[in-house]
Design a protein around this nucleic acid. Structure first.
Lengths: 130, 130
DNA sequence: GGTTTCGGTCACGTTGAAGTAACCACCCTC
DNA sequence: GAGGGTGGTTACTTCAACGTGACCGAAACC
């Protein structure tokens, strides 16, 4: 968190921070980190709680998070995963995204309805102009 | 932000908040929202500043954000985009992700190096056991 | 008024993420 | 020692995101 972090910018395509952003700005990452921040969990628990995730995607996600130093597998306890210190710093920003998504569902859906209705209008006008 | 938001949970696959999370937990969304929060921008500006994004992806992203009510195109001014009130509420959480990504580049890369070295070790051990 | 820039659109092709399903080793227990 | 649950792995398929390049109408500029 030194001033040298100014060197890095996600807006540069080759900057490693862009890759980091891509990894953390991801729905699976968000859900997994939020659950693991509550408490360490077994593979099966995660699989049940993140509805709709497949075993393959869950494994791939956990491996990627492990590689990036955010999650660790506790060796002794059969397939128990927990956040590292680094991973714990991610919970707050990701939790904020989750809260946003759940809070503004209605606004987003209203906007979508408006947008789609307007698109219908445009289509109708175009057809009637032929 | 009423107590009814408890109905929604991103952990349920069919819940509309899951789709919302998928949209906002996305690198392009993050970069576009952060830039537009600074000031409204033209298409070409965005295209230049989000390095590596193609016209197609930028257009698709802007349309999606417009549909979800986070961005609006100012009609009078030739292709100028700005955040809506809803979009502005997104800046803080997304900015936090950006800051995280830029701050912890070194930690993430160190973790990756450690992980990959350990993987090499495992491979070598396996080979030598044959 | 000819050219250039800008903001797209379109029709592809490519890649990478995710889904599917079958299989496997390990442990447990009955 | 057969059967079930858990934590994977593997091979193959599908699908959505993304890339490419060519084109186009409308401003802008000279």
């Amino acid at each position: 968190m030194t001033e040298t972090s100014r060197e890095w910018t996600v807006f540069s395509a080759q900057c490693p921070s862009r890759a980091s952003l891509a990894r953390i700005a991801n729905k699976w990452t968000a859900m997994i980190v939020i659950l693991l921040d509550e408490e360490p969990r077994r593979f099966g628990e995660l699989h049940r709680q993140v509805e709709g995730i497949t075993k393959k995607v869950l494994i791939d996600s956990l491996r990627a998070l492990e590689r990036d130093g955010m999650v660790e597998r506790v060796e002794q306890e059969h397939a128990r995963y927990q956040l590292t210190a680094l991973g714990r710093t991610l919970n707050e920003p990701l939790q904020a995204l989750r809260v946003w998504a759940e809070s503004y569902v209605d606004d987003v859906q209203a906007a979508q309805d408006r947008y789609d209705d307007a698109a219908d209008d445009r289509t109708l006008r175009r057809i009637s102009n032929d």
